[in-house]
């Protein structure tokens, strides 16, 4: 019985020390930033922190996506008539667009969305660039130079001579 008591005390003490280490570790590790700081060091509340709003926007975007999925399913099941489906889908799309816009503007959009935007802008830049045909001097889209396509006016290959003027880059992100 004595041995059991000693064992219990030893294991208990070891657990107590382990607990103290676990509890104390955050205070002693290198990057503990703020222990003992006055209450004025209070972090911004979720409502005023942009990151918090981003998290909220992401959650609401997820919720809109869910709602669109559900609406699609309801429509396929025949529970929602087409007119109502279109009306609600449009409303959800606007909600989603607003959420995506908010995310992009805050710079906290997921990489997929940022990449998507860059691709769209690059495409738009290429589409909007124009140059002159080296043969007939008529204005032709710049992408024809990239694809070595023929001039729609005279049929000469646009990319053959000199190369196109580089397409206008999209706006900086």
């Amino acid at each position: 019985m004595e041995g059991q008591a000693i064992f219990a005390i030893l294991v208990g003490a070891a657990l107590a020390v382990f607990s103290l280490i676990m509890v104390g570790y955050p205070f002693f590790r290198g990057n503990a930033p703020d222990f003992g700081e006055p209450p004025t060091a209070r972090p911004p509340e979720p409502s005023s922190a942009p990151e918090a709003d981003d998290a909220g926007v992401a959650a609401s975007l997820e919720s809109v996506y869910d709602s669109i999925d559900t609406l699609e399913l309801e429509y396929q099941l025949g529970n929602v008539p087409e007119s109502q489906y279109r009306e609600q889908l449009q409303a959800y799309r606007l909600e989603a667009a607003a959420a995506v816009k908010a995310q992009l503007e805050s710079g906290a959009a997921p990489p997929e969305l940022v990449l998507e935007r860059e691709v769209l802008e690059a495409r738009a830049g290429i589409r909007s660039a124009w140059q002159s045909c080296p043969q007939c001097d008529a204005p032709v889209p710049a992408y024809l130079a990239l694809s070595r396509g023929p001039c729609p006016h005279c049929g000469a290959p646009v990319g053959d001579t000199g190369g196109p003027t580089p397409p206008q880059p999209g706006p900086e992100l």
Partner: peptide, 22 residues
């Protein structure tokens, strides 16, 4: 939370996880 102390919050969470083991 009230003091805005990350260390205190993390320590509290560590205590909570340790409670399970104990």
């Amino acid at each position: 939370k009230l003091r805005g102390s990350a260390a205190l919050v993390e320590s509290a969470q560590a205590a909570m996880y340790t409670t399970v083991a104990v």
